[in-house]
Design a protein around this nucleic acid. Structure first.
Lengths: 335, 335
DNA sequence: CGTTCGTCATGAATCGTTTCAAAGATAGAT
DNA sequence: ATCTATCTTTGAAACGATTCATGACGAACG
């Protein structure tokens, strides 16, 4: 069925070694031999078998990417950045969504390891460091995405979520709000925990400011809507005067619950700020203030680091890249 | 470096064939032998080399997916559906974004072919049927996504975009609008062309209704905003009284330009309807009317078809699945 | 006791590409 | 005509898992 180098070699009356040379080091082969081989390849419709190359090379030309959920525009952008950088080197991205499920995360890591991926990009849910450590020790470069490395042995590309969280709450406080609610969860997601931590610190700076936590079971629009409805249904004196959501999807959901399904005004009654600054934030019912992160660049940089590590092997000095979050003020916090 | 079956076999004092049997047909191996081998695997940290398996098996356990751009929530959902179905069979998704660029599309197809993917899911930009045909003839199942098969030789999962386009314009007409603008492009994208075609037909049904086309160079929020600004800056008597956008991203952009950067009211001055019904449509400044498509289901079904075709080989009868679009009415068309 | 059947284990051959030491060919120098 | 030096080509070995024909062993049967 499939055409192999052997048949190409026969058709061009050369050896298989020469065919391989034409494919990989054409400058080492006499011009007319190259032409003859290429003609044979073309005529027979030969397509290299990557599995065989990999077997010999010891690793594949794919990079595994494990994220919480690509449906979150933040991760989608990260994935695009990663793909764009990977494509520059003729590599492909293997996509895996962990759905905040340690088992799925582990399953993907195993799968990727079997595929002998060139490396793994992971926005790790669980702190299954041993597993990552093991992968590394087997020579699989691992780069942590959107997560600072716990020790200097991993490369990472991250944004300081504690700073970002503090930024958000400080902004709310500066616009005169005091009774602040944090909507987000589960706390097991590091990004959520860090943003909350930052929020706590910022709230603690201001006497009289309080921070209430409304925990959600996930970070989608739906869960945001549920949290928003719970807040909306309280007696108005028990409502916060500002809400900081762990991401923009939640904020969009909260917005729906408050304004569109209820009659709480944003920012009149409650100021609202999200996180990530996804494309839709500025197109929301009330344009959403948010904390911006360079998502595409994070993905791009992560693959870049990964490829460097793959190239330099043991000589590679892990690098921790840290981007800074940025406050974007829009109507939802009463510009 | 890497541990192979050979070393596992040595450690467990059995032959490599037995190790392979433990891995693939444990019921054929005596229980205590199985235990011994598993212990050895565990101790040595053996991980199967998928390249070697593939080489023998002739194909990989990945499925290639080529879409226009995963950043479009519609495709993100398709990708998630595909991944979810693939995961059920222990397969992974190789992601490729063509960016509406025939060269990139071709590059990914070549790459996937070299990887001997289990099959290819493609939302084909160009009508490079010959190439797809060639892939098929080499035994690679191909399923067209969001695109009806031009002939019965390909399986496909699609939604009737002509019907959807007609639905949108009919709705606008029924709410009393007459001077309708279609915002979308480039026309080379089939989905865009079909939706426009549907819009044309629906407009033609009503005497007095006109359809103007405002062509865009892409289908993102940014391009929508540009088109919206162009319309906003016209003298008001030259503005349409309704806009149908080729997708929701464009509609969001148009909305920004009209209402947030300008003072054209939606739906007061201009009614607006999008396409895809992405999650954010209902959270937009003015909740967006749209035409809904079952994105996740499309991806899921496509992989299902693909796996069936891969299993049954030449016996497989290509199947064209067609879902129906659905009108979702919200404020933007003046509920 | 000899035969048959079933259960397990074996190991060489195979998949398709790449690598590399070695041989062969050619041209230029002496 | 001989010897180098350079340029090309060769073909076998290797990567690691799977397959399958073959054989070893024991139990059951007549």
């Amino acid at each position: 069925m499939a055409v192999s180098v052997r048949e190409v070699a026969a058709a061009a009356s050369v050896s298989v070694g020469t065919v391989s040379n034409v494919l990989n080091r054409p400058e080492k082969v006499a011009p007319d031999t190259v032409a003859r081989v290429l003609a044979a390849i073309d005529e027979l419709g030969f397509v290299r078998n990557d599995a065989a190359r990999q077997l010999r090379a010891g690793r594949s030309r794919s990079i595994g990417l494990v994220v919480l959920d690509v449906r979150n525009p933040f991760f989608t952008d990260v994935a695009r950045g990663a793909e764009d950088r990977a494509a520059e080197d003729g590599m492909t991205i293997l996509l895996g969504n962990s759905d905040d499920n340690p088992d799925r995360e582990r399953a993907y890591l195993d799968l990727f390891e079997e595929q002998r991926v060139h490396g793994v990009l992971i926005s790790p849910r669980s702190d299954d460091l041993p597993r990552l450590e093991r992968a590394r020790s087997r020579g699989v470069p691992v780069v942590l995405v959107d997560r600072e490395a716990p020790d200097r042995r991993f490369s990472s590309v991250a944004v300081d979520d504690v700073v970002g969280g503090a930024m958000a709450v400080r902004h709310l406080v500066e616009s005169g709000r005091r009774r602040i609610a944090f909507v987000g969860g589960p706390a097991s997601i590091r990004q959520v925990a860090d943003r909350l931590e930052g929020a706590r610190r910022a709230a603690a700076e201001t006497p009289g400011a309080t921070l209430e936590v409304v925990e959600t079971s996930g970070t989608t629009v739906l869960e945001g809507r549920a949290a928003g409805e719970a807040i909306r249904d309280r007696a108005s004196e028990h409502r916060p005067d500002a809400i900081f959501c762990a991401n923009d999807l939640l904020a969009v959901g909260v917005l729906q619950a408050l304004m569109m399904l209820g009659d709480v005004r944003v920012p009149g009654d409650i100021a609202l700020i999200g996180y990530d600054d996804i494309d839709f934030a500025q197109a929301a019912v009330v344009p959403l203030s948010s904390i911006r992160q360079p998502a595409w660049l994070i993905g791009y940089t992560a693959v870049d680091l990964l490829l460097r590590e793959a190239r330099d092997g043991a000589d590679f000095e892990p690098e921790q890249v840290q981007f800074q979050p940025e406050l974007v003020v829009r109507e939802s916090t009463g510009r």
